[in-house]
Every structure is written in C-alpha cells, then in structure tokens.
C-alpha cells in the first residue's frame, strides 16, 4: 500500500474511529476525570463537623483555602511516607522483574502447544479472591515468625503483582524473531551476548509495560500492608484510606490522593518517554 492510499483510507475511517473510541473516552471522562476534579475541589475545602465537607460557600463568603496543602507540605512526615511507599513499590517492581523475566522467557521458549496452558497457570491465582490469597500468607508466614514484618509486605506485594509482570513480558518475548538470534549465533555471539545485545533491548517495551503495571498499583495498595505489615509498615495507600474511613478528613485525604496521582502521572509520562519504540534501527 502506498503512502497516499494509506492516507485516504485513514481519512475515510476517521468518523468510525471516533465513534468507536467515544465510549471509552466518555467512560474515562466520567469515571476518572470527574472524580479527580471533585478531589481537587475537596482538597481546598474544610472538613465538615460530623464528616464530609463543610460547604464551599458559607455565610456569604467563599470557604476555600490552601490550609490542607500547608499542613501537608509543612511537615516531613507525609513526605517520608511517600518516599517509603516509592521504595516499596520500586523493590516490588525489581523483584517481580527478576522473577518474571526467566519465567516469561521459559514460556515463550516452550513448545507452542504448552504455551496457552502455561499462561493460564500464571493467571490462575486470579480465580480466587485477592483477600483470601493474602490471608493465606498470614497462615504461611505466621509459624515462620515472618508475619508482620517488611519482608511479609514485600512478599505479599510480589506475589499479588507477579502475573502483571509476566504477561506483558511474555507477550513481548513471544514475538521476537528467532532468525535474529540464529544469525547472531552464526556470527559467533555467545548466549550472554545474544541476550544482552538482542533479547534484552527488544524486550524493553515489555519491561516498561510490566513495571508500570506493577509499580503503580503497589503504590496505592493498602490491604497488604494492613494485613501483613508490622507496626511501622504504613504506606501512602493506608494513609489515604485512614483519612476517609477512620478520620473523616476528606480534604487531607484528597490532598494526599492528588499528590500521589500527580507523582504517578509524572512517572507514567517518564516511562512512556523512555519506553517509546526507537524510530531508527540501531
């Protein structure tokens, strides 16, 4: 197909494409953007006396302020929890990557008729409820005296998120052209060189996708630290949950969520930038 014809086709398809992408766009607008805007509004309001928010308009004047942001930034303690959460998320992502890469390679390299079964086995844990699987870890770790430790939190996080790393990696590795590896072998490249020069660079998009799929949910996770963590294992997810469900401080909870969302969007943008497929072949 020539460039020109391709251009024509895409022009004719444009309305259809818009129509097809309308529902997901609307969905995101209604269920992501609208709540995010509500949260931004709430972060400037005052907590209500008995829960909820104090009205934004009170006694003829606007009752909005930056007080909650001052409270948040005027203190190292919240920043420390953010920092700690990023460390836990980074560690989880790294461990997931180290565990998932060999597994994804093995699945991609196995006989074609086994692959579907192996992929199915990777996602099989999703068949049982997430909380029940975490409770199972309580029983596993309890007798080993590892329950309620940072180790337990990381172990639980890695366990729950591992499939999210395996699947994009496998999808990527599965599509590698074996001819490249054979050519490299013919030219005298050893196993390690072939991995380092061919497989690894080609799999970078998979690594980035998997890392984002693990890193971001871990950052907001509150159930695992709550169930498996000890007295110091508080993450930003727990902090946010506490503001809404224990402390009735919606403005502070909103502020924390906004800062977290901003940090995550920044990271996602960065990873999209770095993981973008190169235009010219090296």
């Amino acid at each position: 197909m020539t460039e020109k014809r391709r251009h024509q086709v895409s022009q004719r398809d444009a309305p259809t494409r818009w129509l097809v992408s309308l529902p997901p766009t609307l969905f995101l607008l209604v269920f992501f953007l609208a709540p995010a805007l509500l949260m931004i509004g709430a972060s400037f309001q005052q907590p209500g006396d008995f829960g909820g928010l104090a009205p934004a308009w009170q006694n003829g004047q606007l009752n909005l302020s930056l007080e909650t942001y001052h409270f948040f930034f005027g203190d190292w303690i919240y920043a420390e929890i953010f920092f700690r959460s990023f460390l836990v998320a980074a560690a989880t992502t790294l461990i997931c990557l180290l565990l998932a890469y060999p597994l994804a390679l093995a699945i991609a390299g196995s006989a074609r008729r086994h692959r579907h079964l192996l992929v199915l086995l990777v996602i099989l844990p999703f068949a049982s409820n997430f909380l029940i699987r975490v409770y199972a870890w309580i029983i596993l770790l309890g007798p080993a005296d590892l329950l309620y430790t940072p180790f337990a939190v990381i172990a639980g996080m890695v366990y729950v998120h591992l499939p999210f790393m395996v699947l994009p990696l496998y999808t990527n590795l599965d599509r590698h052209d074996l001819a490249l590896l054979e050519a490299a072998q013919d030219l005298g490249a050893g196993t390690w060189t072939r991995f380092r020069r061919i497989t690894l660079p080609l799999s970078l998009p998979g690594i980035w996708a998997g890392s984002a799929l693990v890193f971001i949910p871990v950052l907001g996770m509150f159930a695992i630290p709550e169930l498996l963590g000890g007295t110091r294992d508080i993450l930003v997810g727990n902090l946010i949950k506490e503001q809404f469900l224990d402390n009735r401080d919606w403005p502070l909870g909103s502020t924390l969520s906004i800062v977290l969302t901003a940090a995550v969007l920044l990271l996602a943008a960065l990873s999209a930038l770095v993981g973008r497929p190169r235009r010219s072949a090296p």
Binding site: D49, I77, R232, E242, Q243, R248, D249
Partner: peptide
C-alpha cells in the same frame, strides 16, 4: 465522643507520626 475537625486533624497527624517511627 467525637472531636471537632481541627482536633481530629491534629490527632491524625500524631497518629501518623506514631506509625512512622
């Protein structure tokens, strides 16, 4: 009995500190 919002926030700040240390 419930505290007022200001007191609740100070208490929650203290609680967070207790958790972090």
């Amino acid at each position: 009995r419930d505290f007022d919002p200001k007191t609740r926030r100070i208490l929650s700040r203290m609680w967070t500190e207790i958790k972090v240390r």
